[in-house]
């Protein structure tokens, strides 16, 4: 891999993150009015008397630096953001936005990374097998079933799973990440408890993702099977497994890996509806609460975090891609 290729990719990454930060700064300031006056107006409209309202507004404007020139505010904002100082959360006050995110992050990462990885591997193998002419009739007839599966929204799947396995048969807990989050220790019982709680949310994400990955892989595989190099591989008298893995699947995986990078990037934002359905304390759940309570700083924080993780995932993919596909510039 050449340095100029790597540097170009890293430059692109910095540009994207910077652009995202800037948009995050500009959009709220394009709205009319200012936040302190808005809070006061709310209080006034409820009939509360506020003494010296104008003074309070001026006081807070000065405290938050809202009277400073826009450029100075922008500089300060960028500086703080780069130090992961994302401001105070309104709904979790006095908790800061970054600490709310960090608390939720491990749960989301563990749940979604695992579920996405399982869905990707299972889906890709299944999709490749569905397209493979030597597969059994049973495997090859799975395609319509997977189409149905991928058409069902994952939150609906979550509700069905909840009803069947938690409400009806009571095999799994209704929600939460653990029986008692504060009592978690590094022990086998705790681990089993966490896995027990994560199983249904993970299953709903895997099932919903399975169709997507399998159908994508099936399409890519059908394309590859029509290539001349596959006919020659067969003419060479290679073993069918060798043709399947090294000639067909290896090439069909390339477009899948691009989708995987994007999927991995969105993992950090959580799977909002699944986390809400299962009451799972991940980033998606935080975002849901932030939206409900108009916690702008927290929403901004999650948005920034999402852009950052997608950008990181894409950067890693682009740096790794020349190793996977030699035709990409090294």
């Amino acid at each position: 891999m050449s340095w100029s290729y790597a540097l170009r990719r890293i430059g692109m990454f910095v540009a994207v993150v910077f652009l995202a930060i800037t948009i995050n700064f500009i959009v709220p300031r394009m709205a009319p009015g200012d936040p302190t006056a808005a809070v006061l107006e709310q209080l006034l409209s409820r009939g509360q008397q506020v003494e010296g309202a104008a003074d309070i507004v001026a006081n807070y404007r000065a405290r938050f630096g809202l009277d400073d020139p826009l450029l100075l505010q922008y500089g300060r904002y960028v500086w703080n953001t780069l130090h992961f100082d994302l401001g105070y959360s309104i709904s979790y006050f006095p908790q800061k936005v970054e600490s709310a995110l960090l608390q939720a992050l491990p749960w989301t990462l563990a749940l979604l990374l695992t579920a996405t990885a399982v869905a990707f591997v299972l889906g890709s193998v299944l999709g490749a097998l569905i397209a493979w002419p030597r597969s059994s009739r049973l495997v090859r007839s799975l395609a319509p079933f997977l189409m149905v599966l991928s058409a069902i929204p994952y939150y609906l799947l979550a509700l069905i799973l909840l009803y069947v396995f938690a409400v009806w048969t009571k095999l799994f807990p209704l929600g939460g990440a653990a029986s008692s989050q504060s009592a978690l220790t590094f022990s086998i019982t705790s681990a089993i408890d966490v896995l027990h709680h994560a199983f249904l949310p993970a299953l709903s994400i895997v099932l919903a993702g399975l169709g997507f990955w399998a159908l994508g892989m099936r399409g890519a595989m059908i394309n590859v099977l029509g290539e001349d190099y596959l006919a020659l591989a067969e003419a060479k008298g290679l073993r069918p497994q060798r043709i399947f893995f090294a000639y067909a699947m290896r090439n069909a995986l390339l477009p899948q890996i691009t989708s995987l990078a994007i999927a991995l990037g969105t993992v950090a934002s959580g799977s909002v509806l699944v986390e809400v359905a299962f009451n799972y304390p991940g980033i998606g759940y935080v975002l849901y609460n932030a939206l409900r309570s108009s916690d702008y700083f927290l929403i901004q924080g999650v948005a920034f975090f999402l852009v950052l993780t997608v950008a990181v995932a894409v950067l890693l993919l682009e740096l790794a891609y020349p190793l996977i596909d030699p035709r990409i510039e090294r």
Binding site: D228, Y229, L232, A233, A235, Y247, N251, L254, D325, R327
Partner: peptide
């Protein structure tokens, strides 16, 4: 066999 489409007859990632 010496194939017709030598251009595409070799596995691109090998």
């Amino acid at each position: 066999l010496v194939p017709q489409g030598a251009m595409n007859s070799l596995n691109p990632v090998m």
